[in-house]
Simulated assay, not measured.
Amino acid sequence: MVRRARRCGTAATARRGYAMKNIAVYSESFKAWFPHVEYAIRLAAAFDASVTGVCVCPSPETVMSAHDAPVLVLESIKEARQLMSDAHAAEASFLALARKLGASDAFWQVADGDVPRSMKLIGNWHDLLVLGRTSSPGWGSSSAIGDIVLGCGGAPCLIVPEVHAGPPVLDRMAIAWNGSVEALRAVYAALPMLIRARKVVILNRGGNRASPMDQWLPEFELADYLQRHGVIAQTQVLPDRGGAIGSDLLRAAGDAQADLLVMGGYGHARLREWILGGATREVLEQTVIPVLMRH
Rank of each mutant, 00 (worst) to 15 (best):
M1L: 14
A5K: 09
A5L: 11
R7N: 03
C8F: 10
T10R: 06
A14I: 15
G17M: 13
Y18E: 09
M20L: 05
A24V: 05
E28S: 12
Y39W: 02
A40D: 05
A44T: 06
T52A: 13
P58M: 09
P58S: 06
L74N: 09
E75S: 11
K78D: 11
A80F: 02
R81V: 13
L83R: 15
A98F: 01
L101S: 05
S104N: 05
D105H: 14
F107D: 01
Q109D: 00
D114G: 13
R133H: 01
S135T: 13
D147A: 15
V163C: 15
P167C: 04
D171M: 04
A176E: 04
N178M: 02
G179N: 00
V181C: 04
A186S: 01
P192G: 03
M193R: 05
I195Y: 04
A210E: 11
A210K: 12
P218Y: 04
E221I: 14
Q227K: 08
G230E: 07
V231Y: 13
D240Q: 14
I245Q: 05
S247Q: 15
L250T: 01
G265W: 07
R270A: 09
E273R: 15
I275A: 12
T287L: 12
I289P: 06
I289L: 11
L292R: 10
